[in-house]
Simulated assay, not measured.
Amino acid sequence: MTDMFLEKFRALVPKYLEDEWQEEDGLTPAELDEALSAHTFTIPLVLREFYLALGGCEDLMEAYHYFWDPEELEVDDEGFLMFLEDEEERFTWGFRVSELSVPDPIVWRRNNVRGQWKSEDGTFSEFVFDMFDWAFSDED
């Protein structure tokens, strides 16, 4: 299968960290498969390539929001695969389990106090690129 997002995610390292992408910035396919082996679900292609590109890069995996390590991924009672949380744990982001076969599914955000999910109206790749632009902007 052709990599759809891998190089775009790898390009985030030089863009935001002013350093070349290194192999240790990502996970190897074997490391990722091992981390996911206990799960009963399959992650979308875009999330797989995100981990392959950046799963070892703490400066991006924990840039204001915290991407969950592959072994930490979980599905909630409402049928959302959760992958990201803000630093104050007010919001969690995820995908509908029914859309995990979509290569780049729509991202949903849960208000953790209310327990309500709302669509972000954008795919994972769009969401990630926008989030990093925001997190690394010079504005306060």
Rank of each mutant, 00 (worst) to 15 (best):
M1K: 11
L6Q: 07
L6I: 12
F9S: 02
R10V: 07
L17T: 12
E18Q: 14
D19Q: 14
W21S: 02
Q22R: 15
E23I: 08
E23V: 10
E23M: 07
L27C: 09
P29Q: 14
A30D: 11
A30T: 11
E31C: 04
L32A: 06
L32I: 11
L32Y: 10
L36C: 02
L36N: 02
H39C: 01
T40S: 07
T40A: 02
I43D: 03
P44E: 06
R48Y: 14
L52A: 08
L54N: 12
L54V: 14
L54C: 12
G56P: 12
C57W: 08
C57Y: 07
E58M: 13
L60N: 10
L60C: 09
M61S: 09
M61H: 10
H65S: 10
P70W: 11
E74S: 09
E74K: 11
D77I: 12
E78F: 09
F80P: 01
M82P: 00
E87H: 15
E88T: 15
E88S: 14
E88P: 01
E88Y: 14
R90W: 15
T92P: 00
R96K: 15
V97P: 01
S98V: 13
E99Y: 04
E99L: 05
S101H: 13
P103S: 14
P103H: 13
V107A: 00
R109I: 06
R109W: 01
N112K: 15
K118P: 00
K118H: 07
S119P: 05
S119K: 10
S119L: 03
G122F: 03
T123F: 00
T123N: 02
S125P: 00
V128A: 04
F129E: 03
D130G: 04
D130V: 06
M131D: 08
M131H: 08
D133I: 02
W134S: 05
A135W: 11
A135I: 04
F136T: 07
